[in-house]
């Protein structure tokens, strides 16, 4: 990726981050690493939260967005609550996830596939329907990885805990009108 492209990514990210409540605090990062030390999934990440801010400042955000990093964030908000500079870092991660999807940089990411399948399911029904969500997810990733889920699915089934046919909310048509209306403003 060219430097120009990396700079554009940084600019777009910061624009969105500055719109968050307290988003401007990202400029006050002192690179203390409390965020990274608090992150439960950092062992699997190529770049931890502290490195993400450093990459942003170095104009190398493209490396982060081309890595496995951002979709490993589990939204536990430990980084956010502990950050001495008050940076809402879990929300910065959400911005990074959106940017990655928007730029088509997260094709192989399980987390992104799951989130997209979730959005489709909710749009179809007005609610999340777990059986439909998981079917979409495993068909699009690796159907064989659904096999370890079968014993649990059977246990849930025999206890009547599986919803096979998802019901739709009554106001689905109106909900779609609302979602279309916000979409007209912008795509974020």
């Amino acid at each position: 990726m060219t430097t120009a492209k990396a700079e554009e990514l940084s600019r777009e990210l910061l624009e969105n981050v500055y719109e968050l409540p307290h988003g401007e605090k990202i400029n006050e990062c002192i690179q203390c690493g409390t965020c990274s030390a608090s992150c439960p999934s950092i062992a699997a990440m190529e770049y931890g939260p502290r490195e993400i801010v450093a990459s942003l400042r170095a104009g190398m955000l493209d490396r982060v967005l081309n890595s496995n990093t951002v979709w490993l964030c589990v939204s536990c908000y430990s980084c956010t609550i502990r950050c001495p500079a008050g940076i809402p870092f879990a929300d910065v991660m959400y911005e990074l996830k959106r940017l990655e999807v928007e730029k088509g940089l997260s094709k192989d990411s399980e987390g992104a596939t799951m989130a997209k399948a979730f959005v489709e399911t909710v749009d179809d029904h007005g609610r999340s329907v777990e059986t439909k969500l998981l079917r979409k997810y495993f068909l699009r990733t690796n159907p064989f990885k659904a096999l370890p889920q079968v014993p649990l699915a059977m246990k849930l089934f025999f206890r009547g805990r599986l919803e096979i046919f998802g019901r739709k909310i009554k106001g689905l048509e109106n909900l779609h009108k609302m979602l279309a209306a916000i979409e007209e403003n912008e795509t974020k």
Binding site: K97, A115, K116, F118, V119, K170, G171, L179, I182, K188
Partner: peptide
């Protein structure tokens, strides 16, 4: 009455405003 999904942690990172 006729509530819908809140969006949870999985909708937000795709479409924030929606």
């Amino acid at each position: 009455d006729d509530w819908n999904c809140c969006g949870a942690t999985a909708y937000l990172p795709i479409r924030e405003k929606r």
